[in-house]
Amino acid sequence: MSEHANDHANHHDHHGGHSGSENEPGLFGILSEYETADGLIAATKKAKAEGYEFMDGYSPFAVGDVADAMGYKRSEMAPVMFFGGLIGCLAGFCMQWYLSAYDYPVNIGGRPYLSWPSFIVITFEMTILTTGLSGVFGLIALCGLPQPHHPLFGVPQFDRASRDRFFLCIEAEDPKFDAHKTMEFLQSTNAVSVVEVPLT
C-alpha cells in the first residue's frame, strides 16, 4: 500500500477544498468526465503513471479499481470495527460480571456469582452493537462527513456523478499540478469534458 495515498485519503477528507493551493490560488483542481467506469480506471492509472498524487475519482457506484489505482488498496475500516467490537465485548462481559458478582450479588441456590455461560448472550449482542456502530461512525468520521459544501458541487456536470458519469479530479495541491499542463494531460485521457473547478 502506498503510504502517500493513505495520507492523501485522510488529508483530502479533512481539508478537501478549504486549504487552497500554492500552485494555483483560487483553483480546487481540474475535473475530467468519463462515460464508463473503465474509462475512469484507465485515466486514474495514467495519471498515477504521470506522477500525480493528489487526485480522487468519483463514481455513481463503487469501483474498487479506482482507489486501487491511486494506491489506496486497503481501508482502515476493518481494524476500526475490530477494536470497536472488542471494546463492546469486554465492556459487556465486565459490566455483567461486576454488577452480578460485586455490586448486587444475588445468591440463587448457591450458584456461582460469575455464572459466565448466562452472560454470553449479552456479551455477544454488545459486541455486535459496538462493531456496527464503530463502523458507521468510523466511516462518517474518516470520510469527513457530513460535508454539505464541496467545491465540486459547484460544477454543473458533477450532478451526474451520482447518476451515470465518472469523474477524475486532479487537485491543485498536487506538487506536479499546473493548470495548463494538467488540463492538457486530462484531455488526452479520452475524457468527455475537462473543466476547472474553482475554489468556492
Binding site: A9, H12, D13, T44, D56, G57, Y58, S59, P60, F61, A62, V63, G64, V66, A67, M70, Y72, S75, E76, M77, L139, L142, C143, L145, H150, L152, F153, F158, A161, S162
Partner: peptide
C-alpha cells in the same frame, strides 16, 4: 459525493 476513497471504506 461518490469519492473513490469513500467508496473503499
Amino acid at each position: 459525493r461518490g469519492s473513490a476513497f469513500h467508496w473503499k471504506r
